[in-house]
């Protein structure tokens, strides 16, 4: 099943992520992903939605190049993607600034340019004063913003996000939705955002792709045709969420014994 964006675009689209017929199984275990086709164009925000066992995290690991596919191909013409997890996973022996600095260093940014870059990236996630703070001194939301700055420090054109806000409280999550959309529109990044939260998927994505569970297959995709700023409470978000939730429930019910 091929998913096309179907979205009318004035400008020529450039592919950022191309997933063709990708399957994955671990050892002799069952299929985790089965023939996934997925495409994200440059600057697009794609939400990937699915219940437990749909292989969302596996899919991102494959796209990030951390694991090998069992079948099919993945190409990322825009270069190596960056990946964020549910935990910020900042290194506790480094300060917030040093965590970002390590990403710059591993990317090959010369030492004398790093300090300025760290400052710029922290300002971008509105944490200018926190360069010297240690991760444990920051709140969960602040840590996740440092992780975001660290991901941006890689200068990747594609950002893969694996339920990055799932462990945060609702108020913080809401604020970080705003932040993410602002960063996305400012930087022109391609974002592939995995979640099991329907409203979050619709709130953020230009397109929502629904995966089945065990194995993960692409079931359906929706274009989110909402113009202008939206919020998690927006009626348009709620309306589409109802439709998608119904499809998600139908898929989950299939697994009942």
């Amino acid at each position: 099943m091929t998913v096309t964006t179907g979205r009318p675009k004035a400008v020529e689209t450039v592919t950022a992520v191309q997933v063709n017929g990708v399957s994955k199984r671990y050892g002799r275990g069952p299929l985790v992903l089965d023939g996934i086709d997925l495409e994200a164009s440059q600057g697009e925000f794609v939400s990937i939605l699915g219940a437990s066992g749909c292989g969302k995290s596996t899919l991102l690991s494959l796209v990030a190049g951390l694991e090998k596919t069992t079948a099919g191909t993945i190409t990322t013409p825009a270069g190596r993607p960056s990946l964020m997890f549910q935990e910020a996973a900042l290194y506790p022996w480094l300060t917030a600034g040093q965590n970002i600095g390590l990403a710059l260093k591993l990317r090959g940014v010369p030492r004398q340019e790093r300090a300025g870059e760290i400052e710029r990236l922290l300002a971008l996630v509105r944490l200018s004063g926190s360069a010297d703070a240690r991760p444990h001194e920051l709140s969960g939301g602040m840590r996740q913003r440092v992780a975001m700055a660290r991901a941006l420090a890689q200068d990747a054109r594609v950002l893969l996000m694996d339920e990055p806000f799932a462990a945060l409280d609702a108020i913080t999550r809401d604020a970080l939705h705003d932040e993410l959309v602002r960063l996305w529109s400012e930087t022109g990044l391609t974002v592939v955002f995995v979640t099991h939260n329907v409203r979050e998927a619709v709130r953020l994505g230009q397109r929502v792709v629904l995966l089945s569970s065990r194995p993960g297959r692409v079931l359906r995709s929706w274009d989110v045709a909402i113009d202008g700023p939206r919020r998690i409470e927006s009626a348009a978000v709620a309306n589409l969420s109802v439709e998608i939730t119904d499809a998600l429930r139908a898929e989950i019910a299939r697994h009942a014994r």
């Binding site: 400052e119 710029r120 300002a123 971008l124 509105r126 944490l127 200018s128 709140s139 939301g141 602040m142 941006l152 200068d155 108020i171 913080t172 604020a175 705003d178 932040e179 602002r182 400012e186 930087t187 022109g188 990044l189 700023p229």
Partner: peptide
């Protein structure tokens, strides 16, 4: 990524974004 994003001034914040930013700063505090 534009290279001139050096701080809040350079971000050219809209009013809504500014309100978001202040809410975020309040959460941090």
């Amino acid at each position: 990524m534009p290279a001139d994003l050096t701080g809040d001034q350079a971000l050219d914040l809209t009013e809504a974004e500014d309100a978001e930013g202040r809410a975020l700063a309040g959460l941090d505090a």
